[in-house]
């Protein structure tokens, strides 16, 4: 059974339909990526999963339990943690305060402290800046903070929205290296939305290509990487295969 499953999900922004029947699955321990052009519905899919938008039709299951009717805070409590696009750092709170808010749904003090140390071990730069205001961090550091904050909730699945957006190439590499490490070493399940399709497919196990609210293509990441259609539309037409 898939850890996360979307069945024919339709979502709207007022009267504008953004998702027109999206179905997808993420298995435990997988990195799955959603790629597609601007406006294809990638971010909307994540927002629908985390309950920030309610699907008008279709349903979402977490380990077989229907979560699409739950309010956002309850979905977080179930272990679905969304790291939003643009990072959503609380700019005036310190790095540590940001991380502690990530653990808001938990009440085990000792466990939170352990996880805080674990996040600082994963992102040593955050430890150096733990007393600094989140807003004064660089873009890459803010992304690390956002991911660290997501991990503080002990997610069963982490939803990452455009983690590489606006970062210098060297930092993009670092962020993807961290995503790979989180998955391979710590076993975190990740649903990754990316504009940078090549990097995303290189780190993912499987991928879905979204187009105007539909799933256009799906398959193992390695196959999508060499698919002529995908190559042409999303990988800059270099045509590796």
């Amino acid at each position: 059974m898939a850890l996360l499953e979307l069945r024919d999900v339709h979502s709207y922004y007022d009267r504008i339909q953004a998702l027109k029947g999206v179905s997808l699955e993420v298995a435990e321990g997988e990195v799955v990526t959603l790629i597609g052009a601007n406006g294809a519905g990638k971010t909307t899919t994540l927002r629908t999963i985390s309950g920030l938008i309610r699907p008008r039709e279709g349903s979402i299951y977490l380990a077989g339990e229907r979560i699409s009717e739950l309010p956002a805070h309850a979905i977080v409590a179930k272990g679905v943690v969304h790291v939003p696009e643009g990072r959503g750092i609380f700019g005036r709170l310190t790095v540590e305060e940001n991380l502690r808010i990530g653990a808001f749904t938990r009440r085990d003090k000792a466990g939170i402290q352990t996880d805080l140390d674990a996040v600082f071990a994963t992102f040593p730069r955050l430890r150096e800046r733990r007393r600094q205001a989140g807003g004064t961090l660089s873009g890459g550091e803010q992304q690390m903070l956002a991911m660290g904050r997501g991990l503080m909730a002990r997610p069963r699945i982490l939803l990452l929205d455009e983690p590489s957006m606006g970062l210098a190439p060297i930092l993009v590499e670092e962020i993807f290296a961290i995503i790979r490490r989180l998955n391979r070493e710590q076993g975190v399940t990740i649903l990754l939305v990316e504009q940078n399709a090549r990097a995303a497919l290189e780190v993912a196990h499987r991928g879905y290509v979204l187009e105007t609210g539909h799933v256009r293509l799906a398959g193992p990441a390695a196959e999508l990487l060499v698919d002529p259609e995908v190559t042409k539309a999303y990988l800059g037409g270099e045509g590796q295969g």
């Binding site: 959503g88 609380f90 709170l93 808010i101 808001f104 749904t105 909730a153």
Partner: peptide, 19 residues
């Protein structure tokens, strides 16, 4: 902390599991 999170960004606060 929840109040401050809401003050800073309501959407993110909600995504953090704050009721």
């Amino acid at each position: 902390r929840a109040w401050m999170a809401i003050r800073e960004d309501e959407d993110v606060a909600e995504a953090m599991g704050i009721h």
